[in-house]
Design a protein around this nucleic acid. Structure first.
Lengths: 341, 341
DNA sequence: CTTTGCGCGACACGTTTTGACGCTTCGATC
DNA sequence: GATCGAAGCGTCAAAACGTGTCGCGCAAAG
C-alpha cells in the first residue's frame, strides 16, 4: 500500500522512541519498543523502528547489544543528559548547591547517580557565566551545614541501588548482614523491605526479617551484599506506620507532641530567633535583666533538645517544667563530668 | 538552487533547536536561533527555522511572544521536562529524597524552580512502581534531619532569583534593605555581590555596599526588593577569599584548624561513633569504668562544639585542654542557670 | 529438520523539506 | 510623516526522505 505518510509524526515518534531507551545496564529491543509505541497510538512497522534507531544512533550516544538476538538498545553510560526545556541557570545553580549538600547526607553511590544531571547543570552555568570565566560559581556559593561532623560509613558497592530497587518494586531482598557483634559474623537473611530511613550520617533499611513480623532497622553499611529476590514482599504487619515507627523512638527521634516552650535567651540568640522563628506563634518579650523571653508552641523532639543543649548558656528552658527538668538533669550530669576532675 | 538536501540533519537540527529555546520568562527570536545554529555548523535559511518552530509548536508546549517584532519563542511555564536519557527510577528516588530535604535548607522559591524536574522524577517513579500503586514511595522513605528546628524566614518574591542572576552574571544589584534596627527602615543600596551563603534556616548575600570595600553579609529575607543593575561588579577587594571570610567567624562558623580530640563517651554514643566516625584516624578504646575513650584528629569548628554540647552527658571532652576549658566554662554557666533558681 | 523471530538490503512511491522569491507588516530613524 | 530595513509569511518546484512491502539469511527453539 506504500502509505508513505512520512508526516509530522516522524519527529514525534523518534523523540518518543528516544525517551523509551534506557541507560546502559538496562536495555530494550526493537520489537519491545514497537509494542510500546503501538501502545501509545503510533502504528509503524518494525522495520521503521529499526531504521529510526539506526539513524538516531548516528548522532546520539546510542548503542546496541548484539549478544542476544533481539538486539538490545541503550544509551551509553556517558551519554549526556539532553533536557528539553533546558535547565535555566538559576535552577542549575540550585541543583549544584543541593548536590553539594547531598554529599553529607546521601551515600556517595546515590549521589553518583545524579552526575549526568549535574554535569548538565554545570554546562548551563558555564554558558550563563561566560563573561566571568567558567567555573567561578563554586567559589561564590557556600553551604554551612549544621549536620553532625561525622564521616558517613561507606556502603558496599551496589547495595544502595539494589535496596532502592527492591523498595520500588516491592520485592524481597536477600542480604548478607554483618552483625553488630564483634568480629562481624555474616548472616544471610531474606528480608521484606518496608522503608528507607536516612538519618544524617547513616542510612537504614526498615524491614521485617525472615518469618518475623516485627520491623527492624538494618544499617546499609553493614550489608555485605544484597540481591533482589523474585518473591514479592509480604504485606506490612498489620498497620505498620512509618511515622509511628520513627516517632516511637526506634531512631532516637521520639516525638512527644506539642508543648508550649518558654525560653530565656541571650540577645544574640534572640536576634536570630527573630528572623528564623521557632513557630508561627512565637512571641519575644524583653526581660528585666536584658535577656529575652521567647514563647512558642513547638513539637517536642530530640532535635529540639539537641538544639537547646547545643546553644549552651545562650538559652535557658523555663517551661514546660518537665522539659526544664530533663534539661536540668542533663546539665547536672554534664557539669558533674567537668567539675569532679 | 533548491538544494533540498533535507537529509538526516533535519531531525538533528530540530532537536538542537528545541534545546536552544528557553523557558518562559526568557525568550529567543528566530534570527538569533539561526545564528546559534549556524554557529554549530547547521546552515539553513531563516525561513526554515521559522517553519521548524511552527511545526514543533504544533505538538509541543512552545509559544511565541508577538509583542516585539523579532518574535520571541519560549517554552510555556508548565512545559514538562523531556529528558532524554530518561531518569532511571533510582535516580528519580534520590532526587525526590533530596528535594524533601531541600525544603528545610533552601528558600521555597529556589526549591520551586526544581518542580519540573521533580514532576518528571515522580512520573518515572510512578512508572517504575506500577505494580504497587503509584505514589507509595513517599510513605517508604523518611529523612530525619538534624537541622535546627527553626522556620526559615520568608524571602520576598523574586528576590532570590534576582540575587542568583546578579551573582551569575557578575552584575551589581540595587536593593531595598530593611535594616536590622527596629521599625525596619528601608534603605536603598547599590551592592556588589560576592557570594551566596546558605546557613540552615537563613540565606545571606555577601557583598560590598556602595563605595565601601569591606564585605558585609545581608540576609535575603530583609531584602524588600532587588533588581539587577547594568553595572558590572567591582573586582572583589584585594584577595577576598570566601573561605577565609566564613572561617573568620562572620557567620559564627569560626574554624581553628585541626586538633587531636579526645573524648570519653558513654557506650551508646561509642556505638554510633564506631559506624560513623569523627575522622579517618579515629581510635576507640575501652576505659576502665565502662565508658569509652575516643581519639580523633578533627577540625575545630562551631559545629563540633554544637555536636558535643548537644549530646549532653553522653560525651566528655578530655582534650585538648583548651577545648575542654571552653566546654567546661559553657557547662558551668549553663548549670548556673538551672541551679540558681 | 522445520519453524519462527528478527535483522537487514532493496525498491517504489508519496510526502516533506527546503531554498528562493516576493509581498506584507511593523518599528525605527531621519 | 515618509522611508528604510528587518522579519514574518505564502507559494513553488526539485530533491531527498520516510515508509510499507518483500525477500533473504541467520540463529535459536521446537
Amino acid at each position: 500500500m506504500t502509505e508513505g505518510r512520512g508526516s509530522r509524526v516522524t519527529l514525534q515518534r523518534r523523540m518518543l522512541l528516544l525517551s523509551m531507551i534506557p541507560r546502559y545496564p538496562r536495555q530494550r529491543s526493537a520489537p519491545e519498543l514497537l509494542k510500546r509505541l503501538a501502545h501509545r497510538g503510533l502504528d509503524v512497522t518494525l522495520r521503521t523502528i529499526e531504521r529510526d534507531l539506526e539513524n538516531l544512533s548516528l548522532f546520539l550516544p546510542l548503542a546496541r547489544d548484539e549478544r542476544m538476538r533481539p538486539y538490545g538498545w541503550y544509551w551509553t553510560t556517558d551519554a549526556p543528559l539532553q533536557d528539553v526545556p533546558a535547565l535555566d541557570p538559576e535552577t542549575a545553580l540550585t541543583l549544584c548547591v543541593l548536590d553539594e549538600h547531598a554529599a553529607s547526607m546521601l551515600p556517595p553511590v546515590a549521589r553518583a547517580r545524579l552526575t549526568p544531571l549535574l554535569r548538565r547543570a554545570e554546562e548551563v552555568l558555564a554558558a550563563a557565566g561566560e563573561h566571568s570565566g567558567l567555573r567561578l560559581w563554586p567559589e561564590r556559593v557556600r553551604l554551612l551545614s549544621s549536620a553532625p561532623p561525622l564521616i558517613p560509613p561507606p556502603i558496599p558497592k551496589g547495595v544502595f541501588e539494589t535496596v532502592q530497587q527492591a523498595l520500588l518494586e516491592r520485592r524481597c531482598l536477600d542480604i548478607d548482614y554483618r552483625s553488630r557483634s564483634k568480629e562481624g559474623a555474616l548472616s544471610r537473611y531474606r528480608v521484606h523491605p518496608l522503608a528507607l530511613v536516612l538519618r544524617e550520617p547513616m542510612t537504614y533499611l526498615v524491614a521485617t526479617v525472615g518469618e518475623y513480623t516485627d520491623p527492624r532497622h538494618l544499617a546499609l553499611n553493614r550489608f555485605e551484599s544484597a540481591t533482589v529476590s523474585s518473591e514479592a514482599v509480604r504485606e506490612p504487619p498489620d498497620g505498620f506506620d512509618l511515622n509511628a515507627f520513627v516517632a516511637g523512638g526506634s531512631f532516637d527521634y521520639p516525638e512527644e507532641g506539642e508543648i508550649r516552650l518558654e525560653l530565656r535567651v541571650d540577645p544574640a540568640v534572640a536576634y536570630h530567633l527573630q528572623e528564623a522563628r521557632l513557630s508561627e506563634d512565637q512571641q519575644v518579650v524583653v526581660d528585666d535583666d536584658g535577656r529575652m523571653r521567647v514563647i512558642a508552641t513547638v513539637r517536642q523532639t530530640a532535635r529540639l533538645r539537641w538544639w537547646i543543649l547545643g546553644l549552651g548558656a545562650g538559652v535557658e528552658v523555663m517551661g514546660p517544667s518537665a522539659l526544664r527538668a530533663t534539661i536540668a538533669e542533663e546539665v547536672t550530669e554534664l557539669s558533674a563530668l567537668y567539675v569532679c576532675r
